[in-house]
Design a protein around this nucleic acid. Structure first.
Length: 611
DNA sequence: AAGTCGACTTGCCTGGACAGGC
DNA sequence: GCCTGTCCAGGCAAGTCGACTT
């Protein structure tokens, strides 16, 4: 799409129709023009204006709601509501909006029942969303198609609605071909053209992608509002295919500090609301059309505030180490005979959460995909075997977890755990809750009695970080090369990812490739062993490492290492290990992680131990 | 006491940049 | 150079958990 093509056509607020056809004013051109004018006048050095605009603040001042200052008049209120002020100054430019819809050329047409039809812009835009997804499996899904068709017809004009009644008679192929052509053309852009677009994007990011928090310039995570499209739920989502309509400035609540420059809404528009709530981190929010849930424009993980929270998270997890022996005793050594059903269910649930790193498992609404965690496990998700594969008391889990990722594992458990599971399943239907007396709220309340701030998710962080620490500690190859060290780190990372069941769909089938590589590695090992000269041994060894690396990468296709690296492994462990073994940090952390983990890198404690 | 909601954390997927093999 | 595979930032969906409501 051509960002600079659009014209600003509307400066009159009264011409704006929030939910109707979109033909006014929110364009990237606005943004670009803003940048140009700002650069010549009121911008400070890093591109963020700190000049106050009286006009802007005046026009919307009657809408201001100041939550925290209302509370500030009474300190007790703050104590009671537990609302902490997180910042004094929060100043930003407001989010920016995706380019408005560019209608298709007249020769590109939608065909219904062999008849060419020029759709109204709104209907055409939505047809385009669908056409772009024709190569995807989604468009073969019955639910997806039904949801799409219903929502599409809802925004059609009467005439269109009367005509277009059967999705089977719809032919989007011309539209699809057109979008393919556009993306072909985009690929053919010269390096110069690409550079131009890149620098334009950079300018926009420089202006809108940063904010000021208490004097620090901080990166914003998602400063561009989500584009309209069709909802792509994960797994068997009942709402897949529903229309995500364009988010308008009038739907957006801005959060900034009182007295700071109120961000400028796009020409001809107004913000829905402006608040000054310094107990919250978010800069802007709106309500998601499909989910009905609030969405937020937030600070980037590299920001000071997010880094502080991240450190706190790992400190809490680290603290669990002091308590863990005692907690484990409670579910291994104590007889459960005199416990209530609730207590026994809680004990067994905690055992799973600690041993298998299961998630808490909140109750879910039924307008979401059917997935479970520990507390929401049902009878059908757990099979019990007195003996399986020569092991006693085996529990077989088979369920869909977060993001509908399959969780399948067979584990032997302590006899008393097994005995209780048999009882929890007794006289229940498959679809009934395994832990029918337990929910996450009461589980977490109980955990708080074991350790302050302890919740179910802390166990995942704890066990992930502990696993990494122990696996890295086991590394003692004195003459290892950097490559070998990195490989060892990845191996440790993979163990953590496996524990947390972090998976990713391989883009190409990989198992055949892995098999082939394994064979080659066997042969390479043999070559190292039989090499006669020091030179040939060395080159055989290099070859072997290369193959092992490749197998590593191949296996990595099934296990996603990134999620645990980003969210579960205390970065202080990694920093310490890299320092100790002279591994440059950028070999294990991407740019994004290097900036997210600044707090740990600055500490640079070679002797840090998670435990 | 249970249900709902707000705010924040976690997690998979994707498109585009880049690298390495031919 | 082109083709193919790899890596990563970014996108946004989907969790967790505490607070608020009823």
């Amino acid at each position: 799409m051509n960002m600079s093509e659009k014209e600003v056509t509307c400066d009159e607020p009264d011409q704006v129709d929030v939910f109707g056809t979109i033909s006014h004013s929110i364009t990237s051109r606005d943004v670009l023009q803003d940048i140009k004018s700002d650069q010549t006048d009121d911008d400070d050095e890093d591109g963020v204006s700190i000049k106050r605009s009286k006009l802007e603040t005046n026009t919307i001042s009657n809408k201001h709601v100041d939550l925290v200052s209302a509370e500030k008049s009474d300190d007790n209120v703050i104590m009671k509501t537990n609302k902490k002020s997180e910042w004094e100054i929060l100043e930003h430019q407001g989010p920016i909006f995706p380019a408005e819809y560019t209608p298709l050329p007249d020769n590109v047409q939608f065909i219904y029942d062999k008849q060419k039809i020029k759709l109204s812009p709104a209907a055409e835009e939505v047809a385009g969303f669908y056409a772009k997804m024709l190569d995807h499996k989604y468009t073969e899904n019955k639910i997806f198609n039904e949801n799409f068709f219903t929502d599409w017809r809802d925004i059609m004009e009467e005439e269109e609605k009367n005509l277009i009644k059967d999705i089977a008679k719809c032919d989007f192929s011309q539209i699809k071909d057109y979008f393919e052509l556009l993306s072909e053309n985009k690929k053919k852009q010269t390096t110069e053209e690409k550079k131009m677009l890149q620098s334009e994007r950079k300018k926009i990011k420089n202006k809108y992608g940063y904010c000021i928090v208490d004097g620090n310039r901080e990166k914003i995570c998602n400063y561009i509002i989500e584009a309209p499209g069709l909802f792509k739920g994960r797994g068997d989502h009942p709402k897949m295919g529903k229309l995500k309509t364009r988010v308008m400035p009038e739907e957006i609540t801005i959060n900034c500090s009182r007295g700071s420059v109120v961000p400028k809404p796009p020409a001809g528009h107004q913000w829905g609301n402006i608040i000054h709530d310094n107990s919250a981190f978010w800069l802007a929010s709106w309500v998601g059309k499909v989910s009905g849930k609030k969405k937020y424009v937030e600070l980037d993980p590299s920001s000071t505030l997010k880094q502080e929270k991240d450190k706190q998270k790992y400190d809490t997890a680290k603290r669990l180490h002091k308590y863990i022996d005692e907690i484990r005793k409670s579910y291994t050594e104590h007889s459960m005979n005199n416990m209530s059903i609730l207590e026994r269910q809680r004990t067994v649930a905690l055992y799973f959460i600690d041993k298998l790193a299961l998630r808490a498992g909140n109750e879910k609404d039924d307008d979401l995909a059917d997935t479970v965690g520990c507390c929401s496990l049902r009878v059908e998700h757990v099979e019990l075997y007195d003996i399986k594969d020569n092991k006693e008391n085996v529990v077989e889990f088979d369920f869909l977890g977060k993001d509908s990722m399959p969780y399948y594992i067979s584990v032997p458990v302590e006899p008393h755990i097994f005995k209780n599971l048999v009882e929890f399943k007794k006289n229940k239907k498959d679809t009934e809750d395994l832990f029918d007396d337990l929910d996450t709220k009461s589980l977490n309340e109980y955990l708080k009695t074991l350790m302050p701030e302890l919740t179910a998710k802390v166990f995942r962080t704890y066990n992930a970080s502990r696993t990494l620490q122990m696996k890295l500690d086991a590394f003692n190859k004195a003459d290892a090369t950097i490559d070998e060290k990195v490989q060892h780190y990845n191996q440790a990372n993979r163990e953590v990812a496996t524990l947390c069941n972090h998976q990713r769909t391989a883009r190409v089938p990989t198992s055949a490739r892995a098999e082939k590589l394994e064979k080659e590695i066997k042969q390479a090992r043999l070559k190292v062993d039989i090499a006669e000269t020091e030179d040939s041994r060395e080159s055989a060894r290099r070859e072997l490492i290369k193959l092992e690396n490749r197998l590593d990468q191949t296996l990595n296709k099934q296990v996603a290492l990134n999620t645990s690296r980003e969210h579960y492994m205390d970065p202080r462990i990694t920093v310490a290990w890299c320092l100790k073994h002279d591994v440059p940090l950028h070999r294990v952390y991407s740019e994004r992680l290097l900036s997210k983990f600044q707090w740990a890198i600055k500490l640079a404690d070679k002797d840090f131990v998670f435990g």
